[in-house]
Amino acid sequence: MLKLTDVHAGYGATPILFGVSLEVRAGEAVALLGRNGMGKTTLLKTAIGFLAPWRGAIEFEGVDLTRRAPHEIARLGVGFVPENRRIFPGLTVRENLELGLSAAADRSAAVRRRRLDEVFHHFPRLAERIEQPGKTLSGGEQQMLAIARVMMAGARLILMDEPTQGLAPGLIRHIRDMIAELKRLGVTVLLVEQNARVALAVCDRGYIMEKGSIVFAASSHELRESPVTREKLGV
């Protein structure tokens, strides 16, 4: 579904990614693990079009993404949940959700109602806060909103950047369950995490990134057992 081949990218003259290749197949949940500053977020930004790769190919369902603008990539069905729960603080929960619908092919009132119902089924807490400005939500609720927003768009592939960062254990469990639920609904997930335990609990397989390259790829089971994981991530 998403395929990166030998991707090189960076900021200005500073290279960050050194020939990254990875693949996410339809229906999978894949973890991208690694310590801080290893290029995980840069990889996501390159995939969604915020950063043009210097070299290499990025394909989504056979469509070349390397020269496409972020809004075009979103409309192809790629959703992005940025780190630190980046919602629109001044807009209400409803407005945040309805903005998410723009990437959807069908934006009719019927679709909007159905998607809102689905989202509220998964996140009843958001339904209670529907008319509240985004900034009045707690960290966990904002994370739910950021995830719900890409669900509104009907994204088929969701890229998540550190969704559990800074959340309390109870909320981390909730987010983890939500990712599992997305997977059950048939959504493909690429999950960037520092918290390997959470990521490997929901993902089928994973990659470990170090200094801009993929250094290890294996199934979640292998990753859990492997000494390499401990060595590279310190868990």
């Binding site: 915020f50 980046r86 629109f88 603080p89 001044g90 807009l91 903005l99 927003r149």
Partner: peptide, 16 residues
């Protein structure tokens, strides 16, 4: 307003 609050967010949500 979404653009005012964060342009990049509006872009990855699919807005030109």
């Amino acid at each position: 307003v979404a653009i005012r609050e964060n342009e990049d967010r509006a872009r990855f949500l699919g807005y030109n």
